[in-house]
Design a protein around this nucleic acid. Structure first.
Lengths: 148, 148
DNA sequence: CCTTGACTTGGAGTCGACTCCAAGTTTTAC
DNA sequence: GTAAAACTTGGAGTCGACTCCAAGTCAAGG
């Protein structure tokens, strides 16, 4: 029925916030699968490709290097659920990473708020980074956060 | 009274997770102020310097480029509260950035959870990145999140 | 028919952020 | 006294991630 809308690389760039050059670069390094071409050789993108690009953009913002994204993109490409158990493991692991990153960011937000509210030192505050491998079990609220 | 504990660059590296070389590099590009030296020329670090390093480590994890960190570190260095109004503005702005980044990350977490829970597509889901300049007013919960 | 614009390719160049020398000094350890 | 450890400096090299360029193709407009 529906003719599956397609997009040019320019449109894909606009919608994802990733430049055309960069999209081609991603294809070149095989971060993205080779895009389909029209008869004239021009790349064509579908809605799901745009979504993949947006996911990349998302992950990039969080400072993830391209190589680390590969497993994620595999999952997006072929939308299998939990067929590759190793991949699922990776995803879970990264989910934890992200949650801890959110925690880190929260610390920064707290730091800023502290700085903003006054010159008053509440507590130096650590827990942000290194050394302490953040206790595994309850990743609950290390600090109360009222921003969510 | 108290003799203010000091650390070597090696100790600073251990405690911050930033390599000695990198710490020297940061000093070279003046991301960090020139560290005090002992008579023999060796750098010495105090607790607050370690904290600054940890903050850098924190921000790095969030993908922030070094140049963007400068304003933050200025604030840490001289612990003035709201004496530089421009700086305060920057901090507030970045705080918003971070909150939105947390939001982005939350989307990724949601995405992972969705993928993990089943191959079922709940909804493509956007809102993560680009195009939509995320409405200014209520940065409240774009999506319900039950991780916090 | 010729130009303009949107694309293609391969490859070179850039830039940020390290990372790794080499040469030198000083302290500690035996 | 000699060697190893822990530092110093300046500078070169590397690596990831683009970013730019030149040359070429194709489609539509004046």
């Amino acid at each position: 029925m529906k003719a599956e809308q397609t997009f040019t690389i320019k449109q894909a760039a606009e919608q994802s916030g990733i430049s055309e050059d960069t999209i081609r670069y991603y294809e070149k390094i095989a971060l993205l699968p080779r895009a389909e071409r029209k008869e004239n050789g021009h790349r064509i993108y579908r809605q799901e490709d745009i979504q993949t690009l947006q996911l990349i953009s998302c992950l990039k913002k969080t400072g993830m290097p391209l190589e680390e994204m590969r497993p994620f993109l595999t999952v997006t490409a072929d939308a299998d659920p939990a067929e590759y158990p190793e991949l699922v493991e990776r995803l879970k692991k990264h989910r934890e990473n992200i949650v801890s990153q959110i925690d880190s960011l929260q610390q920064v937000v707290d730091f800023i708020d502290m700085k903003l509210e006054a010159g008053r030192y509440r507590r130096p505050d650590d827990s942000c980074s290194t050394k302490k491998e953040s206790q595994e079990k309850p990743p609950a609220s290390t600090a109360q956060n009222n921003y969510f």
